[in-house]
Amino acid sequence: MALLELRNVSKIYHLGGEEIRALDDVSLDLEQGEFVSIIGPSGSGKSTLMHILGCLDSPTRGNVVLAGTEIARASARELARVRNRTIGFVFQFFNLLPKLNVLQNVELPMIYAGIGGKERRERAEKALEMVELGHRLKNRPNQLSGGQQQRVAIARALVNNPKIILADEPTGNLDTHTGELILALFRRLASEGRTVILVTHNPEIAAVTPRRIEIRNGKIAHQVDAKLAGLDRLPGAAHGGRNP
């Protein structure tokens, strides 16, 4: 059983009578420990897909199954719990709270996990040391560079020890060098056994990941999985998942 499955998922928006299929009947399996990149042009539905994978949004049609449990039937409270414990989300624009310092930002998910003050601080410090920001605990986000802010956001995503890391264009707002450092961090996380899913529009970055999924007009256009020997390219399948 896959860790995270999408079954015939569609997300449809209605704008002034016009129907926008941000996701159009997508099926997808993600295994534990996979390192996956999602590529595609702007507006193709990458963010929508990530939001549904990350339990931030629910599909109009179809099913999301996380560790054997159907998310469509989960309550808002349960979804919040999944976001809190099972999934770490990294955004393109960092999404740190400007009024809180670095340490408090990283402590935030643990507050909602009901973890006590002392343990919270210890774990936040450890996570920040891991992204090499152990010396900037008391700084406000606006006192940090973009790369540093994104590392704080990664520390925040990691601090509750989630199984799945979702990153929506995490290097999109960073220079190439900083982007590479962030990318190395994600590779490391994947090698530790976490499922890491990365959205990018940069083919060079996508080339790093063993598995690549290309999205066009809300559908999966191509899939490449280097791990599956001899199957470098799968035919683009409107209804297909990874396995035919």
Binding site: L3, N84, G114, M130, L185, R188
Partner: peptide, 25 residues
């Protein structure tokens, strides 16, 4: 970068097993 991250638990995850949130008043 030197990375020392917490180990990922390998047991299957069950939504219902998750501890109940406590809002710290």
């Amino acid at each position: 970068m030197s990375l020392e991250s917490p180990r990922v638990p390998s047991t299957e995850l069950q939504l219902t097993d998750l501890p109940v949130d406590k809002t710290s008043l």
